[in-house]
Amino acid sequence: MLKYIIRRIIMMIPVMLGVTFVVFTMLYITPGDPAQTILGENATEETIAELREEMGLDRPFIIQYFDYVWKIVTKGDFGRSYTNQQPVINALIDRFPNTIILAVSSAAIAVILGLILGVVSAVKQYSIFDNFSMTLALIGLSMPNFWQGLLLMLLFSLKLGWFPVSGFTTWKHLILPALTVGTSSCAIIARMTRSSMLEVVRQDYVDSARAKGQKEYIVIIKHALRNAMIPIITAVGLQFGAMLGGSVITESVFSIPGIGKLMVDSIKARDYPSVQAGVLLIALSFCVVNLLVDLLYAATDPRMKSNIEGKA
């Protein structure tokens, strides 16, 4: 198992190098000179040239790229922000926990609600509950989350006054954004759980568990759900990535000081090092989540475990 984990971590390296390459290239080809951006409109040509040399912008592309990666790997140096000249890493450290808290709490809402809705819909297929929750899921899937955020804000903050409108200091600030980010993922997980459970629930071993006199909820949870879990875990893993991304817009709606808001503000201010760093950090988190998902497969399905151990 340990071998497998190490192999997977090693496999992440080329992907992350690829991501840094894509992001670096994209922002390298961006029109506009960073030195000019930092110094402003009134800078003389000499000072711009000096700063370009100091920042290493006069070197060939590939050298700049490796230098960028090297600095990140060895010093955790993502460059300096063009707007306040502070190291980008400081802003990342300040804001990353907020994004993670938001994503994890949205994921918790999405997984718990999604599993319950999906399992009950499958067990009571074609019932009123099934139709109702699947319609709800379809609506949740079709609703843009920023609009939903605004609607929640209108109802619960502005009209009822139950939750604060913006900011991110207490648990009360977390509820509405987490609901906003979690809804569409909840819908996807509910649909996936339902279809995956429907395939399992009619199989013979489920009937034989019932015939043994097992209680219904044990049959459903232990015998059916566990076997239906693989596609559900895949969906959850993919959705966690989507939630990390989805928090970008929701953070703007609720003015949460997270990575997403940092990126949106940075784009408007043309502060590219911050954009780059934000994308890299989220992509890295996404890769780590995918690794954890693969490990979870092994924990839920012994067949996968032996397969993994066989390969490792």
Binding site: F21, P31, Y272, V279, F286, C287
Partner: peptide, 24 residues
């Protein structure tokens, strides 16, 4: 497929934002 893995590692909204940051 390895190239596609790289693109898939970036959540799409972030990818959109970086492309827009690059192109305007």
């Amino acid at each position: 497929m390895r190239c596609m893995d790289v693109f898939l590692a970036i959540p799409s909204i972030l990818f959109n934002i970086s492309i827009i940051a690059a192109l305007g």
